[in-house]
């Protein structure tokens, strides 16, 4: 069973639907025991970093996720869920993340040409840096994914296994052993997005 972590952040309808569409056993849950006993964990999220991390703390799931990661359980963060895997974020203040991925989350503003719109929203091309990673089993160089975000990962070269170009190199897929994250929304990226979720389920 794949646990989709429910901590009150974001709309989980599409994510749940996409996993069900793939025939995968999944459950939206905020229950510590259920998350602990799941085979894999997906950490979704939309909204602001500070709020989301606070909600993880308030529900007692912050430490639980750290423990699960340490035990080797596969975790996949999506969008803000991916950003929370990082050490730190500078989104409206300074916030500590889960710390699985080295680096910090910073605003696009000031880092990219003023001509480029923020949020980085739309279909962008993946540049696979480690095409042989099992998460890319069904993904090819140059496949398009759907992004929506105003902040991005920085100083995280080691962990970036795919990036996208938007004035700067935008970490698109990150990894540290059993922990993965995608900045884009696989559940909104058509067939290719589904293929990535399928590959994660097969890890």
């Amino acid at each position: 069973m794949i646990a989709i972590v429910d901590y009150g952040c974001g709309n989980l309808f599409s994510l749940k639907s996409s996993l069900s569409f793939l025939g995968l056993d999944c459950k939206i849950t905020g229950d510590a025991d259920e998350i602990r006993s799941a085979d894999k964990i997906i950490l979704p999220g939309v909204g602001a970093f500070g709020d989301a991390v606070k909600k993880l703390h308030d529900s007692g799931l912050f430490e639980l996720l750290q423990q699960c990661a340490k035990e080797g359980k596969y975790i996949f963060g999506i969008c803000l869920g991916m950003q929370m895997l990082f050490e730190k974020s500078y989104e409206y203040g300074e916030h500590e993340g889960l710390g699985f991925i080295k680096g910090e989350i910073c605003p696009f503003e000031g880092d990219i040409d003023a001509e480029l719109k923020i949020p980085h929203m739309g279909w962008n091309k993946l540049n696979l840096k480690r095409a042989d990673d099992p998460i890319f089993k069904y993904i090819e160089q140059g496949d398009y994914m759907y992004f929506v975000h105003s902040f991005y990962g920085k100083n995280c070269d080691d962990g970036v296994i795919a990036d996208a170009e938007y004035g700067v190199s935008v970490p698109a897929v990150v990894k540290n052993n059993n922990v993965y994250g995608a900045q884009f929304h696989p559940e909104k990226s058509g067939e290719k997005g589904l293929a990535l979720l399928k590959a994660f389920a097969e890890l």
């Binding site: 309808f13 599409s14 639907s17 996409s18 069900s20 569409f21 759907y146 559940e187 909104k188 990226s189 058509g190 067939e191 997005g193 589904l194």
Partner: peptide
Amino acid sequence: VASEIFIP
């Protein structure tokens, strides 16, 4: 639609 079409 949203249960089987996974684009925005």
